[in-house]
Computed example of a mutant assay.
Amino acid sequence: MDGRDGMRAADADREVVADRLRVALGEGRLDLHEYDERVQRAYAARTYAELDGLLTDLPPVAPVERSALSPLTPAAPPSVGDQPAPVARGVTARWLADVWFPYLRVIAIVVTIWAVTSLLSQDLLYFWPGWVAGPWGAVLVVRTVSGLAAKEPQRQAIKRQRRRERKKAKRATNPNETPPTP
């Protein structure tokens, strides 16, 4: 290795590569598992060659003349028409589960309470769980549509990944700290 490839990379260079990988995740070029692996390798990289190797199969984010300072300089992701970047199915499914499961649990509980009280009274009582399910469900439908349109599942996945990275970095800086026992 000669020239730039053999030179030691700085923390700022690692951050630039991690940001580019985040963009690739948002564009749907990487899945969460591959993104996680590459980010770990980016933060462990020592040289520019190791960092460049993490981006070789990804398209450049800027024309060559705009990135003359460094091939690692971030830029805005290329736009392909007005189509949004594809979202990994697992990310969207997890986000939908986070949004809808509390609602489904509560509705199951209130419908069960209504059914038990109807059985005990031996009469079909007024279906009051509709007053819980209807408005809350309408709010969740609006939240789901607006969240999918605003790419909320991707943002949530990136936030989750950042939290994991911070925890790993914190563990790396405090190796003598013992984890709590269950």
Rank of each mutant, 00 (worst) to 15 (best):
V139I: 11
L69F: 04
I158A: 00
W128C: 13
T112N: 01
I113C: 02
T112M: 04
P71D: 11
P102G: 04
T144Y: 07
A108G: 08
A108I: 12
A115E: 01
A150R: 11
V110P: 02
A97C: 04
W136E: 13
P86K: 10
A169Y: 08
I158W: 04
I107S: 09
S118I: 08
W114K: 06
Q156K: 09
S67D: 13
P77V: 06
R163N: 04
F101Q: 06
V145N: 04
W136A: 11
W136L: 05
K167V: 13
A150M: 02
A115F: 05
F101K: 07
V141Y: 03
P129E: 04
V80D: 15
V116K: 05
R94F: 01
K151C: 01
V106C: 07
A133Q: 15
E65P: 00
T92H: 01
L104S: 01
E165V: 12
A85L: 03
L140G: 11
R160L: 06
W100D: 01
E65Q: 08
V64W: 05
V110C: 08
V87T: 13
P71T: 06
A157I: 04
I107W: 06
G134V: 05
L96Y: 06
I158Q: 02
D123F: 03
S79L: 09
R66C: 07
R162Y: 01
T92S: 03
W114S: 13
P102K: 02
W131Q: 06
K159F: 14
Q161F: 10
V99R: 07
S67A: 10
K167N: 09
E65F: 03
L69E: 03
P86F: 15
V87E: 14
W100L: 14
P84Q: 08
V142C: 09
R143G: 01
T73W: 10
P129M: 15
P71V: 08
R162F: 01
I107L: 14
K167Y: 06
L119Y: 07
I158N: 00
K159W: 06
V116F: 03
R162E: 04
F101M: 14
V64E: 08
D82I: 00
L72A: 09
A138K: 08
V111P: 02
G90Y: 02
T92L: 02
S67C: 13
S121K: 10
S121C: 03
A88H: 10
T112R: 02
A157K: 07
P153Q: 00
T92Q: 14
R143S: 03
T73N: 11
L124P: 15
R105V: 10
G134M: 14
A150K: 03
A75R: 08
D82W: 02
L148K: 00
L125W: 05
L119G: 12
G90M: 10
G90Q: 14
K167D: 12
V116S: 05
Y103S: 00
G137A: 10
E152P: 00
Q83A: 12
V91I: 15
P135G: 11
A169K: 14
L124H: 14
D82Q: 05
I109D: 15
V99H: 02
L69Q: 06
F101I: 11
V116Q: 05
A68Y: 05
G137F: 14
A115K: 13
A76L: 09
W114P: 02
K159T: 09
W131L: 04
L104I: 05
Q83T: 15
A138E: 12
